[in-house]
Design a protein around this nucleic acid. Sequence first.
DNA 1: GCAAATTAATGATTTATTCAAG
DNA 2: CTTGAATAAATCATTAATTTGC
Lengths: 230, 230
Amino acid sequence: MVLSMKVHQFARGFWDEPSLSLGCKRLRPLAPKLQQHNQHPTSDTTTTTLTSFDLKTFIKPDCGPRKLGSSHDHNKDSSSSSSSLQTGVETHPGGTRWNPTQEQIGILEMLYSRGMRTPNAQQIEHITAQLGNYGKIEGKNVFYWFQNHKARERQKQKRNSLGLPHSPRTPPPPPIIPTFHTAEDDSPYKRKCLYWGFECLVEDHNGIMCKKEEGHDRTLELFPLHPERR
Amino acid sequence: MVLSMKVHQFARGFWDEPSLSLGCKRLRPLAPKLQQHNQHPTSDTTTTTLTSFDLKTFIKPDCGPRKLGSSHDHNKDSSSSSSSLQTGVETHPGGTRWNPTQEQIGILEMLYSRGMRTPNAQQIEHITAQLGNYGKIEGKNVFYWFQNHKARERQKQKRNSLGLPHSPRTPPPPPIIPTFHTAEDDSPYKRKCLYWGFECLVEDHNGIMCKKEEGHDRTLELFPLHPERR
DNA sequence: GCAAATTAATGATTTATTCAAG
DNA sequence: CTTGAATAAATCATTAATTTGC
């Protein structure tokens, strides 16, 4: 199959699609990268595009490495300590990776404790919007948080079960996630539901305090988040 | 700090309540670190009041098992009706999986052969747009194609090297790929929700696609659009 | 007390596996 | 049985928390 693609030129230019330009918004003050908008104005070219395939369009001109972070702040406040550091180190105001605030973590854990494991896009958006009230955050952060948290809880559990395998069988297998019905029925709102109630420690058979894992009860049933399967 | 949470409200009406304030902080898992990062300049108090947390918003109608392929809101203009994407491939309400056309496969393989492995969000969009001329396709299809193709080439290679280890050396391992590192990229929020984003290739002096050196940014949005499956 | 050096967490990606449509 | 789609496991990388020497 030959597609009439014009491979020959990998010339650059063109990736900047007009429409998306917005993206380029975040440039940081530091490196002024200039993005190039180049030529090719248009061309609606696309005309061709209709049927032909322009390889060249696949090459991005390269935009500089902009890292940045974003506006924002996050305020790592940090410090108190006097300033100190900031001195140039760059902590750059923008940091690179997301640094969750207590509130954000709290909400996320609450949701997790209620059974949420892999929120869908819609949910992620929602959560992101809510958490945005407490600090900078993006959808992907939420997505990753759930992935990581789920995976790490899993390892932790595994480690524990191996480390002290008493309890022959019934190795706390299924996290069990509550079943979440719809609110309405059982008394959903019965619990007080401390915001961050999770983390609650409980005493196990041996009198050792441990974190109650994924418990079934705890405060729950508040809302039908959709139970994840599994 | 007190959390002034109005717990009682959790009672009924919860969903109706517009919002519930929350603000408390939580302890960190093991080591209580108290960091306080509270964000928001504004109050340092965490009064909570500032923002409210609407639990109910997490529920969302969602409802049904929507499977649909990705329609997902977002501007994706969706399908219905029109076609933004051309050809009217049917929008298949039912959501089926992508069924690539010869042309699409051809282009993808060509790109793969040139070294592309993990296109970033921008590239995916571009590719998607191009391939859209040959049949219905979405960004995630492109993303997955590269992932699967890469992984399967890898297995195939492994199998071959083991199965018939003639050719002592050079077991065609390196697909050639230039270096691919991360890339920079762009835009964080730019996308509403691109399915996922990744590295970006750039052209080097020789016109070969390679990964842009040193950028560390990979910032992109990612997350699966509909996770609910299964 | 401070800050470089070290360590513990955990955010972000990549790779391997699994599941299921066709 | 091929392969699109999705998840889980493994890995990489940064930042926060600690420790340590001056």
